[in-house]
C-alpha cells in the first residue's frame, strides 16, 4: 500500500487537455508544416476532387475521420504491433476505415458516393495518412495521436477546400452550386456576362491554384526547401 501512495505523489500533474505542446499538434500542420503545401503529399486527390466544393467537403470530412481513427487505432496497438509487419497492419487498418466510409456514403449520401467513390478509395494510398501513422502514432500516446491526425487532416482539408473554392468559382461560376456569376451578371444588365474558365475544371487548373497558394504561403513564411 505504502509504495503505491508514494508513487502517486511523485506523479507529475496531468497535462492540460489542450496544453501548449498539444495545441501545436493541431496548428503546426495548418501552415508551418502543411502536408500539401510544405510536405507536398496527397497531391493526387487534391487535384482530382477539387472541381466543386461540395464533393471536396465530403472528401475532407472523410479524410479527417480516417486519419483520426487510424491514428487512434495504431497508437492503441503500438506496443503490440510486430515491427516486421507494421506497414501491412497500418494498411489493413486504413483500408478497413476507408471501406467503412465508402459503405456509409453509399447508404446515406448516394449522390456523393457516385461522384466520389473512386477517390474515397484512394484515401488508402494517401501518403499523409500512412506518413502520420508511421512517423507519429507508432511512437506516441493515443490522445496525442488523435490530435496529430486531426491537425494533419485539417491542414489537408483547408487547402483542398481553398483550391476547390477558386476552381468552382472561376471554372463553373458558382460556389457550393450557387450560381454566383449569373447573379453578378444580372446586376449589370442583360448584355453583361462573365465567362467561365474551362482550364479551371481540368486538373491543370488545380496545379495552377495550388502553385499560387504555395507561392503566397512561402513568401509569407519565408520557408525554403532544405537539400
Amino acid at each position: 500500500m505504502s509504495t503505491e501512495t508514494a508513487q502517486a505523489e511523485v506523479k507529475k500533474p496531468a497535462e492540460g487537455l489542450l496544453s501548449k505542446r498539444r495545441k501545436k499538434f493541431i496548428t503546426d500542420p495548418l501552415v508551418d508544416n502543411n502536408p500539401i503545401t510544405i510536405q507536398v503529399l496527397g497531391i493526387c486527390s487534391a487535384l482530382a476532387v477539387t472541381t466543386q466544393l461540395q464533393p471536396t467537403l465530403v472528401m475532407a470530412i472523410s479524410v479527417i475521420f480516417v486519419m483520426v481513427m487510424a491514428n487512434l487505432t495504431i497508437s492503441l496497438l503500438r506496443n503490440t504491433i510486430p515491427s516486421r509487419v507494421r506497414i501491412i497492419v497500418q494498411l489493413a487498418v486504413i483500408a478497413s476505415l476507408v471501406t467503412l466510409v465508402n459503405e456509409v456514403l453509399k447508404a446515406f449520401a448516394f449522390d456523393m458516393y457516385k461522384e466520389l467513390s473512386v477517390f474515397v478509395g484512394l484515401i488508402i494510398t494517401n501518403c499523409i495518412v500512412m506518413g502520420r501513422l508511421e512517423a507519429f502514432a507508432l511512437g506516441n500516446k493515443p490522445y496525442d495521436s488523435v490530435l496529430d491526425g486531426f491537425g494533419s487532416a485539417l491542414g489537408y482539408a483547408w487547402i483542398i477546400l481553398a483550391v476547390a473554392f477558386f476552381r468552382e468559382l472561376l471554372g463553373s461560376g458558382s460556389v457550393f452550386g450557387v450560381p454566383v456569376y449569373d447573379s453578378i451578371s444580372g446586376l449589370f444588365g442583360e448584355d453583361f456576362s462573365l465567362a467561365t474558365n474551362g482550364l479551371m475544371v481540368s486538373p491543370v487548373g488545380a496545379f495552377i491554384i495550388l502553385g499560387l497558394i504555395i507561392w503566397v504561403q512561402r513568401t509569407k513564411t519565408g520557408y525554403v526547401e532544405h537539400n
Binding site: S96, L100, E103, V104, K106, A107, F110
Partner: peptide, 23 residues
C-alpha cells in the same frame, strides 16, 4: 477487421439497396 467490415455491410445493405433503387 473482417468481422467489422462484413458486419457493417450487413447492417447497411438494406439502406444501400433503397438508395440504389431511389437513384
Amino acid at each position: 477487421l473482417g468481422l467489422l467490415l462484413s458486419g457493417t455491410s450487413q447492417v447497411l445493405a438494406p439502406i444501400q439497396k433503397k438508395a440504389v433503387e431511389l437513384d
